[in-house]
């Protein structure tokens, strides 16, 4: 069974329709890369999946959590959205680490607050996750003392700490200096190898070739075409895809 299903997802800001009816099904352990020019709606799509943006129309299902768009913001719905968020890790372009907490405290926060994990247990889990992203020796550093690449890896560890079914990445390397991009992409690749289901919005084409099971090209709020990275990068069918690729390459 698919792990993510999106039906006819729409999002408008006033009269501006940013997503014009997206249908998407993603299988367990699939790695999907979404590309497209800025303003194409790719980030909005990702943010809708986590209800950081409230979709205008459509249905989103992640695992067993299904939420219809445009529902009343009552207690029950808010709870459902929280449950869905607990199961989806979200990695931001700007990291959004908690600056007043050390790396390990950042990672411990979720388990303690969301899962009610005991302090010592959370510390062991967080230490293991930071080691996994190559930062076992940076546990007690504050975000301001870490490089961008290190901060983003802490952010990934923070998301993993909640044991998500799905990881969503919103341009995870766009705010990084070029020499720091690799270390972050490596962590994401390792997760792909472990079978984590992931949706990644990125402009890193060689990375997409490496890691993506499927590449989706979006423009003007619709999915223009999708396929394997080879199909999209080497033999794009749509004119708009060709145009975009010729500019990026």
């Amino acid at each position: 069974m698919s792990i993510i299903q999106i039906n006819n997802l729409k999002k408008s800001y006033g009269t501006n329709e940013v997503l014009q009816g997206i249908d998407l099904t993603i299988a367990k352990s699939e790695v999907v890369v979404i590309m497209g020019p800025s303003g194409s709606g790719k980030s909005t799509l990702l943010r809708c999946l986590n209800f950081l943006e409230e979709p205008t129309e459509g249905i989103i299902r992640i695992g067993e959590f299904q939420i219809d768009a445009g529902g009343k913001a009552n207690r029950q719905r808010k709870k459902e959205i929280r449950e869905l968020r607990k199961k989806t890790g979200f990695v931001f372009q700007s990291f959004n680490l908690f600056p007043h907490k050390t790396a390990i405290e950042n990672v411990m926060e979720g388990p303690i607050i969301i899962h009610g994990t005991k302090l010592e247990e959370a510390r062991i889990l967080a230490k293991a996750l930071l080691t996994k992203v190559g930062l076992g020796d940076r546990c007690d550093y504050y975000p301001a003392q870490l490089s961008g690449g290190q901060q983003q890896r802490v952010a990934i560890a923070r998301s993993l700490a909640l044991n998500p079914m799905v990881m969503l990445y919103d341009e995870p390397t766009s705010a990084l200096d070029p020499e720091l991009v690799k270390e972050v992409l490596q962590v994401i690749k390792d997760l792909a190898r472990e079978g984590m289901t992931m949706i990644i919005v990125t402009h890193e084409m060689s990375f997409a070739k490496d890691v993506a099971d499927r590449v989706i090209f979006m423009d003007n709020g619709v999915i223009v075409e999708q396929g394997t990275s080879e199909e999209i990068f080497l033999k794009p069918k749509e004119e708009r895809t060709k145009q975009f690729l010729s500019i990026v390459e």
Binding site: N50, L52, K86, T88, S94, N96, F98, I113
Partner: peptide
């Protein structure tokens, strides 16, 4: 920064948890 609230909510925190644990300690400074 608004990203702090977004990061907290995206983890599944309630609004008041996010305020208490993440936003207020930073705003105090």
């Amino acid at each position: 920064d608004n990203g702090q609230m977004e990061a907290s909510l995206s983890m599944g925190m309630t609004y008041s948890q996010a305020l208490r644990r993440i936003i207020l300690p930073q705003s105090l400074r």
